[in-house]
Design a protein around this nucleic acid. Structure first.
Length: 410
RNA sequence: GCCGGGGUAGGGUAGCGGUUAUCCUGUAGCCCUGUGGAGGCUACGAUCCGAGUUCGAUUCUCGGUCCCGGCCCCA
């Protein structure tokens, strides 16, 4: 009986895994250098954690189940909620800001397509405890730096929701969120229809439609003409100034809304090319979720990077790990094992496990792309040395094990 | 949940009603029991699943499933 892999999941072969781990570690290094600490949360959580955040509607998109104690559980579909839950459970007394990051797999019951899987990996950052624009700026700059570190050019779109919210403040809360969702989807006709439906004031319609179309260097000034001098606009300007100091290229985009109610101010998204319909590689903003999970009124800002999408367009290759292949005769197998054991403290070593002929062992070394073969035959054993053969040049020399270690630069 | 395009050895493919199901690559071994990469030889290995049409289906029809892309959704 042949069992196939579950839909939307992937097997990562040795080469894929090496590439992924490599990129993953590059990202980790960057984030650590920005002063963030890695955390791990459970692979499954109480279902309520996510319905509380996103509504019952998401259950259809979850890998949820009832456990043997009749508890409603789910594999995590994302990590922001778990991290906030962890904060509320364990870290409320910690000094702020808390700078946390994670790299974990998530699960969503969705139709797979390019850059979208049922099991996927998210690399995310959450900065908890600061509601200052400085925190927002640092988080955006970090996202931008991470992508740069793995050689991805993306376009970064930033917005400050305070401005659109100011404009909409005359409307009811639920009308506001409906509008935000339509803006997020870039559904202009839907938006016009809805404004008509709720009979929004004419000037508001015009101002809103103009605001969300604003982008580019003049955008702030144009927005000011629409809203007048408001603190949110000041703050936005301050954010942009900081981003320039960080050396981040950004695009002002009043059309970024992120569709969800818990975003409070700054929001951003990064798009990359070569990904088809799913071209967003990063999204984030400042939000208020901690209160929802029973904690205090603590602001956070963070983002998630779609690691699989990054891998799709990232062409960074890991360094060769210079393996050495030991080639022995049947009569020198014991010495070969002993030598391998010593060398394995210093380098990757292959030993023949197939009882192959001398020639076939050498051929194997060639096939796996080894740069060095180490010949241990009877004459080498007699001399108490080994023959190191350079597979590229074909040259070989008789050396002691210590000399081999030194020569291999370990 | 919906729409489109696809499933032939491990990978890449040809055949499109009757073939020992093609070729390349791969893997194991031999030619060649202390020197690899080339070549030759041998072996291994496939029609996604199930129904239907037919004397006969890899080929045609339907259903399922999986893959690819898109819609919806995107926390």
């Amino acid at each position: 009986m042949k069992i196939s892999r579950p839909r939307g999941t992937r097997d990562f072969l040795p080469e894929d895994t090496r590439r992924r781990r490599n990129v993953e570690n590059i990202l980790r290094k960057v984030v650590r250098n920005w002063g963030f600490s890695e955390i791990i949360t459970p692979t499954f959580e109480a279902l309520e954690l996510f319905t509380l955040k996103s509504g019952d509607g998401i259950i259809g998109e979850l890998y949820n189940f009832t456990d043997k104690g009749n508890r409603a559980m789910t594999l995590r579909p994302e990590l922001t909620a778990p991290v906030m839950r962890m904060y509320v459970n364990e870290m409320q007394a910690n000094q702020r800001p808390l700078k946390l990051f994670y790299f974990e797999n998530c699960f969503r019951y969705e139709r797979p397509q390019k850059g979208r899987f049922r099991e996927f990996w998210q690399f995310g950052v959450e900065l908890i405890g600061s509601n200052k624009i400085d925190a927002d700026a640092e988080v955006i700059a970090l996202a931008s730096e991470m992508l740069k570190a793995v050689g991805i050019k993306g376009s970064l779109h930033v917005n400050h929701l305070g401005i659109i919210r100011h404009l909409l403040s005359v409307l009811k809360t639920e009308q506001q969120s409906r509008i935000m969702r339509l803006v997020d989807k870039k559904d202009d006709t839907g938006l016009v229809d809805y404004l008509e439906e709720i009979d929004a004031p004419g000037h508001l319609r015009l101002e809103l439609m103009e605001l969300i179309s604003l982008t580019g260097s003049e955008a702030i000034e144009k927005a000011r003409q629409l809203t007048g001098d408001i603190p949110e606009l000041e703050e936005y300007q301050e954010l942009l100034t900081l981003l320039e100091a960080y050396g981040v290229d950004y695009i002002i985009d009043f059309g970024i809304a992120r569709g969800l109610d818990y975003y409070t101010g700054m929001v951003f998204e990064i798009y990359a090319e070569g990904l088809g319909a799913q071209n967003q590689v990063c999204g984030g903003g400042s939000y208020q979720l901690i209160k929802l999970f029973g904690g205090g009124d603590v602001a956070s800002t963070g983002f998630g990077l779609g690691f699989d999408r990054i891998m799709e367009i990232c062409d960074i290759e890991p360094d060769d790990d210079k393996p050495v292949v030991i080639i022995a005769m049947d009569s020198t197998r014991i010495e070969a094992v002993e030598t391998a054991t010593k060398l394995r403290f210093h380098m990757p070593v292959y030993l023949d496990l197939m009882k192959r002929s001398f020639k076939a062992q050498l051929s194997y070394a060639d096939h796996i792309g080894a740069h060095y073969a180490l010949i241990i035959g009877e004459s080498e054993v007699e001399a108490g040395k080994v023959t190191l053969k350079n597979m590229d040049s074909g040259k070989q020399e008789l050396l002691t094990i210590e000399e081999v270690i030194q020569k291999m630069n370990c």
